[in-house]
């Protein structure tokens, strides 16, 4: 097991090198340059020339690449063109916000999606099955910016149950430490802030979790249906076991592998930052930030961000692979 983890982590290195090269090339091959974007309408030839020189964009591509790799090997991702802040600091500032939102979104998705899928499969073609699969279909195809705006309009403006957006209210005594606000407020025993933070999390987490919830529900249902047709399930019933036991102990455990795969993949995707949800709910996370960086041609941020995301994705996948062994004893990692 331990050796396996080490092996997988070592395999991360070539993946990241590959990603670094590809990202560098893609980023530098897309048309447009950061100096131009930064100066906007004010971009005269002289001003551009001067700015490019200062940013080191006048060097040839191989020279820039060599500099990039050299810095990367020292663990230096460079500095943002927009703000001149180190890339690592910019990313670490925003990743916790994304992590927190993704975590609560996936919790919502799993705790609603899995039971819905199970119930649907138990009563195949019943009204509940049809209804929940219809909801799931709508959920998968729902444009999230629309859903998010509707949530804000209904629950914040009209009903006033939840705050419309942001991570925390104005005027609260609160000092971010880890930038995971839930954890920070617990660490400071600041339960007013904790309540406020959780309150702010509900709408964006549900909006962000809706699509994964729908995907998980559909996957759970089909995976369960397949297992429920197996001979050993019939045997279990024949032995006189109760339906509850058969479903939850015998069927669900075996249906879990594909469900875990889907949950893991969805979580990995969410961690890359959800552009739409973050935009609508003014969530200061990675997704919106990376898209802004692409528009501004902030090369170091885009490179660093994608590299970071690739690393996170690989690690999430590793955790998923390891968790297979927990539900299926036939799977062992040597």
């Amino acid at each position: 097991m331990f050796n396996y983890i080490i092996k997988r982590l070592l395999a991360l290195i070539p993946i990241l090198i590959g990603v670094a090269i590809i990202v560098f090339l893609i980023v530098h091959l897309i048309p447009g340059d950061p100096a131009q974007t930064m100066l906007g309408e004010r971009a005269t030839d002289q001003a551009l020339e001067r700015l490019r020189e200062q940013m080191g964009l006048n060097d040839s591509l191989p020279v820039q690449f060599w500099r990039y790799v050299k810095d990367l090997l020292r663990g230096d991702l460079g500095r943002s063109i927009m703000s001149n802040n180190p890339v690592s600091a910019e990313l670490m500032q925003r990743f916790p916000a994304t992590l927190e939102l993704s975590f609560f979104a996936i919790i919502f998705a799993v705790f609603v999606g899995v039971p819905a899928g199970i119930f649907a499969s138990m009563n195949q073609n019943s009204w509940f099955d049809n209804l929940s699969m219809l909801i799931a279909l709508i959920g998968v195809s729902m444009p999230i910016f629309w859903l998010g705006l509707m949530f804000i309009w209904l629950f914040a403006v009209e009903l006033g149950w939840f705050p419309p957006s942001s991570r925390i209210g104005v005027g609260l005594e609160f000092t971010p430490i880890t930038n995971l606000y839930v954890i920070d407020s617990i660490l400071q025993f600041n339960f007013t802030a904790l309540k406020n933070v959780l309150h702010h999390l509900v709408l964006p987490a549900v909006a962000l979790g809706t699509i994964p919830m729908a995907i998980i529900a559909r996957m759970t249902r089909s995976s369960m249906l397949e297992v429920l047709k197996k001979d050993y399930i019939r045997t279990a019933y024949a032995k006189g076991l109760k339906r509850k036991i058969v479903i939850f102990k015998h069927a669900l455990k075996n249906a879990m592998v594909p469900i875990i795969t889907v949950v893991g993949l969805q979580f990995g995707v969410l961690l890359g930052g959800a552009v739409m949800t973050e935009t609508i709910f003014s969530w200061p996370g990675l997704g919106k930030y990376l898209v802004d960086a692409i528009y501004a041609r902030d090369f170091p941020i885009v490179q660093g961000g994608i590299l970071f995301f690739a690393g996170v994705f690989v690690i999430v996948n590793l955790i998923v692979d390891l968790s297979y062994a927990l539900v299926d004893p036939r799977i062992q990692y040597e």
């Binding site: 705006l149 705050p163 957006s165 209210g169 104005v170 973050e278 935009t279 200061p284």
Partner: peptide, 20 residues
Amino acid sequence: IVFRSIPDNSARFMELQSGS
């Protein structure tokens, strides 16, 4: 003074309507 970034125009307007 608190300057808040609220990227989406519609969301920002709803914030104003809800009073936040």
